[in-house]
Amino acid sequence: MSLTLAQFNNLSQEVAIAQLLICCTSSVWANKIANARPFADFDALLANSDAIWDEVQTNEANLLEAFDGHPQIGNVASLKEKYRNTQDSAAHEQSGANDAADDVLEALAKGNQDYLDKFGFIFIVFATGKSAQQMLDLLLARLPNDRATELANAAAEQNKITRLRLSKLLGNA
């Protein structure tokens, strides 16, 4: 569903919150954004979203609620489906690339489970435009971090995802 900003500003509170929860499943964030309406323009919405997210992310329960809105990338079959048609423009076609891709997907599934086991929440990353190998590299780079660092990293990635979803909701993407 794509809305104009005027339509979004005029939604009932209940419907606005429901639309916002599609962008980010933090109920505190969604309620605060809905209460901050009307917005003069899309940039004002994003600025408010960023400011409210800065407040919301100080509470771990709010973060975990937002993270729970993402599916866990842990199933090799679902990873294969996700990346089946993804092509990195810099990649060179080589024999055995399909086998390498399966290895990457299996490593990504294992890494995601290792991440969940270590931190207690799923690996959150702004995945748009990233290949499976890039995702794996990011996951492996973040896995040695402590939990506080990863909460902050995941919160920053969540905000990028939320901004993209707001853009899509309002037809700006």
Rank of each mutant, 00 (worst) to 15 (best):
K82V: 13
L108H: 03
I122L: 11
G69A: 04
A141W: 01
S89I: 11
Q133R: 15
Y83H: 11
K118L: 07
K80P: 03
G111H: 00
P144N: 12
Y115H: 09
F119H: 10
L105G: 00
Q87T: 13
T128M: 11
N75H: 13
L139N: 08
A107D: 13
N112L: 01
L151E: 05
F126R: 15
V76P: 00
A91R: 12
D88S: 14
Y83S: 08
G120V: 09
D88W: 05
K110V: 06
H70V: 00
S95H: 08
V76T: 13
S95K: 10
F126Q: 15
A109V: 02
N75T: 15
N75L: 12
F126L: 14
L79G: 02
K118A: 12
R84G: 07
H70R: 03
H92L: 12
M135D: 10
G129N: 13
A132C: 10
L116G: 00
N85M: 03
T86M: 10
H92M: 10
G96H: 09
F123R: 01
G69N: 04
L151G: 01
P71G: 04
E106H: 07
D99N: 12
A100G: 05
L105K: 01
N145Y: 09
S78P: 04
P144K: 08
P144C: 06
T128E: 15
A152N: 10
R142Q: 15
E106D: 12
Q94V: 14
R142D: 08
D102H: 05
F121S: 02
L108I: 06
V125S: 04
A132M: 07
Y83I: 11
K118S: 08
Q87A: 12
K130F: 10
A141H: 11
V125N: 02
N112Y: 01
A141D: 15
H92S: 11
E81R: 14
G69S: 06
G111A: 01
Y115Q: 03
K118T: 09
Q87L: 09
V104D: 01
F126S: 14
D88E: 12
P144I: 08
G129P: 11
A132Y: 02
L138I: 14
P71V: 08
K80M: 13
D68W: 06
R147W: 02
G74P: 01
P71T: 09
L116F: 02
S78T: 15
N75M: 11
Q134D: 11
L140S: 15
D146S: 10
L151Y: 10
H92Q: 13
K130M: 14
M135Y: 09
E106W: 01
L138P: 02
A77K: 15
A132Q: 02
A77Q: 15
Q133F: 12
D146A: 11
A152C: 05
